[in-house]
Computed example of a mutant assay.
Amino acid sequence: MIKIGITGQKGFVGSHLYNTLGLNPEEFERIDFHKEYFDNAETLDHFVQQCDVIVHLAAMNRNPDPELIYHNNVDLVKKLVNSLERTGSKAHLIFSSSSQEERDNRYGASKKEGRRLLAEWANKNDGVFSGLIIPNVFGPFGLANYNSFIATFCHQLTHGESPVIDVDGEVKLIYVGELVQEIINQIKSGKTAEEYIVPFTTYIKVSEVLAKLVHYKELYFEGGEIPVLTTQFDYQLFNTFRSYFDIAAHYPVKFKQNIDPRGAFVEIIRLGIGGQCSYSTTVPGITRGNHFHTRKIERFAVIKGKALIQLRKIDSDKILNFYLDGNEPAYVDMPVWYTHNIKNIGDEELLTVFWINEPFNADDADTYFVEV
């Protein structure tokens, strides 16, 4: 069992790493960290003493005062180094630096200096240190106007705003899930890598990214249609886009019913991709689900009976409740990293149609059971 602490545990990359490590409780034990620990040497020391691995992600990357960014980030590293020395820690230290190290800005300079200080500690104390130089990171739940231009574009397109491209350059990107796997690989290696350049996985123009997102808005956000997704980047970008919906306001989405003397015809889903479609009957009082996915795209469509669909982001206590009635057929799509269930709250049998973008594979189910 490897005991891992993450500074910046609640940040964009930190929360993804923390949640992913939680999928393997037999291999990793997560040591909780709170930003207040940096303000109390005794508390910080107690944290450091518990860890076999410390992933230092805590940093400031946006502020009107560039010097504040520099001094904040370097001071955090110095506090961590002081704690490592006070406690005689032999933890494997993993540091998230940036491809901006060589740019003429104070954020990049702070990252370069932080990496130097931690490498110096490791060399002096026979420690293990991984200095990761990371390209632009994107993925679900990043903060608009802070973590990435993709986060900003996604938020704007789902909240009635119009994105503007400042510089249409080509950018090197890595999906947050891919970065998390790189960090886990470093954890498992247990070897020093003072300057490890994390490879980017996508190289694309900003305008191409925006064109894809505008397409997702028109087809999916406004029309409920799953677009054609041909590459791994397309799936990553689409799931990123979906995470910026105001879920409580967007769902449930009512279907258009085409009614004539024979009855009604309802289109459940229009696809640019394949997948698996199925249905279930559920007797009154029974709940199905209570699981989440990290990559799958899934739709629950209620066409008969009364249902309560519940969603909860796995690192949140907030539960979203959606009440659906087959008299007005509607659907709810399941965001990644949200555990979800469906319960028959009526007096008759509930009929639900399910669609998911990939057939079930027991060897790679991407299904993790957690109560809503």
Rank of each mutant, 00 (worst) to 15 (best):
F300R: 03
I303S: 11
F322G: 14
L311P: 10
T287G: 07
N290K: 01
L324H: 04
H293K: 02
G285N: 08
F322V: 12
L324Q: 05
V283L: 14
I297L: 13
L308W: 10
Y323F: 13
S278F: 02
Q310V: 07
L320N: 05
Y323A: 09
V283K: 12
M334R: 13
I319M: 04
G275D: 04
S278R: 08
I286T: 10
A301G: 07
E298Q: 15
I319P: 03
N290Y: 00
D325Q: 03
T287V: 04
I286L: 14
T281Y: 04
I309N: 15
T282H: 00
K304A: 09
D325V: 02
V283T: 13
E328C: 13
F292A: 06
K318R: 06
P284T: 11
D325S: 00
N321R: 09
F322D: 12
G305C: 06
R299Q: 15
F300V: 04
F292N: 10
Y279Q: 01
D317P: 05
P284S: 10
D315W: 11
K304F: 07
Y323H: 08
V283I: 11
S278G: 04
M334H: 13
R299T: 14
M334C: 15
H291K: 11
A307W: 00
H291W: 09
H291D: 13
M334P: 10
K306C: 11
S316H: 04
A330G: 11
D333P: 05
T282I: 06
I319N: 03
G274H: 03
Q276E: 12
T294M: 15
A301S: 09
G285T: 08
L311G: 14
P284V: 08
T294Q: 13
L311Y: 15
A301R: 00
C277Q: 05
D315S: 10
K313F: 05
L308F: 08
V283F: 08
A330R: 13
S316F: 01
M334Q: 14
P284H: 10
C277D: 06
G274C: 05
P329G: 01
I309F: 14
G326P: 01
Y331H: 06
D325A: 01
I319G: 00
D315V: 07
V302M: 02
H291V: 11
I309K: 15
Q276D: 08
A301T: 09
R288C: 01
